[in-house]
Design a protein around this nucleic acid. Structure first.
Lengths: 317, 317
DNA sequence: TAAATTTGCGTAATCAGTTACGTAATTAAT
DNA sequence: ATTAATTACGTAACTGATTACGCAAATTTA
């Protein structure tokens, strides 16, 4: 088992499987020891029936946490051995009502000694260990119930990746990225318009020189997100948040969120008290992000963009 | 999972299996998350090859603790995907020497982020639990290595059963058991002799009334073992230990040991200082038992029994 | 009351491992 | 130099679970 100590947590699954195997392998032998003609895999089914109640296949499956075909098969095997009797429910013809037979009930008595001895053996092992396997399993079941391992790994990935994102000021070398990232989503959902071309082809002339700002998100030195703050000629608003674009391949790295926060604090630095933006309700993730950043829906302004069907603003405190 | 808390330790195997399933189920998704075209079951094989060394199928199997057919299958699947290259060993034509291909080595780099995130996710879970699953598994592996679960259960069974054995004085109702239990082994290995019949048919006349003693071992009120102390007319010895018999169906309950100890302490009570016995070396378990009880081999006495080829004595302190 | 949906359960296919077995190559023993 | 034993490994069959699917009965909906 030395192998596992090297690779660490990655193979937790493999390791669990091997321990499981080792234990269930012995289980078959243990039944033999007590002269009980029962397969270990029958045990959970056997146990729920051992109180003498009648149960349907699916009821048993639910109770023991197996799939119903599994129980179905086990019951037919136990039936062949004469441990259980099956009968159709009279009032509901779909149900297969199962209960322990005379023979099965006898086994419940024979097996009692085995319960005791197995429990003692396991207690003996538990006494020799510092970490309680039984409780650990219970805790893991609980914790995984709350949030799956997959979700947790996803979160770790996002966390790690977003910590590798750097937000930097626009430089001439990013012009192509600024253009392409924006063109990508605009032409996917809408149509490039006159004013798009102007701003994207000459960001320095149309944005920076007019007192605006552009930020670029770098992931592993590659520009994968961009966002602009355009100076507005309006008494109500200082800037328009526009041309925000994140590469689809950079999803799940919180780049939008990081860019948004950075551009807002940049606006604050520039003394802005109110930012405006235009968008379209088809872009649900974007609207969502704006909302999370603190933007509120407003209405009434005239806009040069056809694609605009929602307007939002953020009051900077 | 409430079910398991009821039946307790008996279904440790079942429960482990279910946790294993839950974890490995997510594993496949996790690889997808990192865009790695690898199946979780490949991982152990992949890992041992990731240092770039060439290995044979069986060497890998040994290292990761799988069976060789399992590795064989995994390698052929990985080979189909181009992750590994196989080639026959030049000096030993049986060996299939495997190593990671160019593509496989690339994956070792892609997968590094995944290692980190999975490890963090598991650490996060560990931080939320009081019992360390990882260490618990390790301990169980170690403890089961020392002595299997089967062995432990066997021991518990013996312990419990021997505590249910009662050693009682002979009474007339046990005469049939005394006779049958002895006849069973004598006629199985040897032939009933004249003196056997005398003692077995009339134990009161031939043993008790002459100052001897008979003890009976009861298991669940059934006489399953007997043993006699026969008064000897000899200056060297006080008693002969004889007619010791245990039912074959009562094996593993330490009945022989309990009877032996009881009869020795009975001899002590009766003031004996030396006990004698005769046996045959074919009866290995019996000789063994006598040895454990403290008897030592001696020689030289004349005996009426044909079957005697070993003589032993015990000096009582 | 007819149609649609849900429920119960059996069968078939699949999956990731195993053991059993056969074959070929190598090594050891006579 | 044979013969026997061991080793490497692939194929086949089995195992204990799963998901997928389909049928029939029961229930709900229109």
């Amino acid at each position: 088992m030395d192998f596992f100590n090297h690779i660490g947590k990655m193979a937790l699954g493999s390791r669990l499987r091997m321990l499981t195997e080792k234990i269930t392998e012995d289980a078959a032998q243990i039944y033999k020891l007590y002269d009980i003609d029962m397969q270990p895999k029958w045990f959970p089914v056997f146990y729920v029936l051992s109180k003498g109640e009648e149960k349907t296949i699916t009821a048993i499956a639910r109770e023991i946490g197996h799939s119903h075909p599994s129980v179905s098969k086990i019951i037919s095997e136990m039936s062949k051995k004469g441990f259980v009797t099956e009968k159709k429910d009279e009032t509901d013809g779909r149900r297969n009502v199962v209960c322990l037979s005379e023979i099965g009930m006898q086994v419940t008595h024979q097996i009692e000694d085995q319960y005791v001895d197995v429990a003692s053996a396991i207690d003996e092992i538990a006494a020799q260990t510092r970490n309680d396997l039984w409780k650990a399993i219970e805790e893991w079941e609980f914790v995984l119930e709350q949030k799956t391992l997959l979700r947790r790994v996803q979160e770790q990935k996002k966390l790690r990746e977003s910590s590798q994102v750097r937000i930097v000021d626009y430089r001439r070398e990013y012009q192509l990225a600024f253009r392409n990232l924006n063109q990508e989503w605009i032409s996917a959902y809408f149509k490039m318009e006159e004013s798009d071309f102007k701003a994207l082809d000459d960001p320095e002339g149309y944005i920076l020189n007019k007192g605006g700002k552009i930020l670029v998100a770098l992931y592993k030195e590659e520009p994968l997100g961009v966002c602009a703050l355009i100076k507005m000629d309006d008494p109500d608003y200082d800037f328009e948040l526009a041309k925000m674009a994140v590469s689809p391949k950079a999803q799940g790295k919180s780049i939008g969120w990081l860019l948004g926060q950075a551009i807002i604090s940049k606006a604050k630095e520039l003394g802005a008290s109110k930012i405006y933006l235009e968008s379209n309700t088809i872009l649900k993730p974007a609207i969502n992000l704006y909302h999370k950043l603190g933007f509120q829906k407003v209405a009434g302004r005239i806009t040069p963009y056809e694609r605009c069907n929602i307007q939002m603003e953020l009051i900077i405190k």
